[in-house]
Amino acid sequence: MSALLRHRLTWPVLALVLLLLLNQLFRADFLSVRVQDGHLYGSLIDILRNGAPTILIALGMTLVIASRGIDLSVGAVAAIAGAVSCMYIYSSPEPASLQTAATGVAIAVVAGLALGAWNGFLVSVIGIQPIIATLVLMTAGRGLAQLVTDGQIISVSNDSYQAIGAGYFLGLPISILIAAAAFGITGLLTRRTALGTLIESVGINPVASRLSGLDARTITWTVYVFSGLCAAVAGLMISSNVTAADANNAGLYIEMDAILAVVIGGTSLAGGRYSLVGTLVGALIIQTLTTTVYTLGVPPEATLVFKALVVIIVCLLQSSRARTLLSRRRRPVTEPSRPKVAA
């Protein structure tokens, strides 16, 4: 039992369950999922579908944060990805064909990879602090997206493209399936290979990692490229869902949501051990929170207030170290930590 209480996923999961129950209290049909036209419907499905872009971006963000970094540019990258694909489809001679949609998606993915590589270059090769390096693209990115769309909201009508964000497959929204697949692949890629452990090593102790022969530069670069990829796919989802590219508002503040999801999921902003499941739970908490606010009849825009409160509470909980420091601050933390097991 006490082991269960100490597990770092216990509290996020508990919070998620409480939020869901709270909703059920106010709306009796909240937890029910019904089948209509062969598709699944219900609030839970909505939460998953609306949360899919955040989940995707948070996956990339988890690995970036685990490596001691941060990626502020994901919102801008999502906007650019939506812009380039929509623009391609819009200006193509066959705007409705599957092939056009596929090419548009491919262009967006390449753009995401390239932008991620740019961030990774600034961080790992030039050696600029991650928060500052990605700030550049965060600032310029939406301008670039507007440049692509010429400042217009580009609407496209392509059924294949629309399917990414709004379509169904086997009764489930495709965006949920994409997010689930991304989650699964990320999990496999990091835990079936050594990538996850190596990212954690670099995040926990870069010096020791280098002295053990790790190529920290390549690993750092990889996580930013991956983050760019996730952001691009999320951007496709967002623009496909509304069948339009909105350079200004697509993915606005999504970097904040993603960071928040990672932190709620128990991955420390200081880098190191990460939990993809935790991030998933964190993203779902954020999405459910939005829904809850709506259910409670508060203006939906006020969700931000609740998000702020959640950030503050989570941070205070995580900084329990600060409290122990206060009680025994005479012993600086640089001293040898207490060995729990005798030799």
């Binding site: 904040m256 960071i259 932190v263 931000l304 941070c315 900084s319 170290r321 420091l325």
Partner: peptide, 21 residues
């Protein structure tokens, strides 16, 4: 609480914007 300024002021960003609404 020795929390990074970045994350605290991010919470401030959310809070102030939310209070606007």
């Amino acid at each position: 609480f020795e929390i990074q300024p970045f994350i605290v002021t991010l919470a401030g960003l959310f809070l102030a914007r939310g209070l606007c609404y």
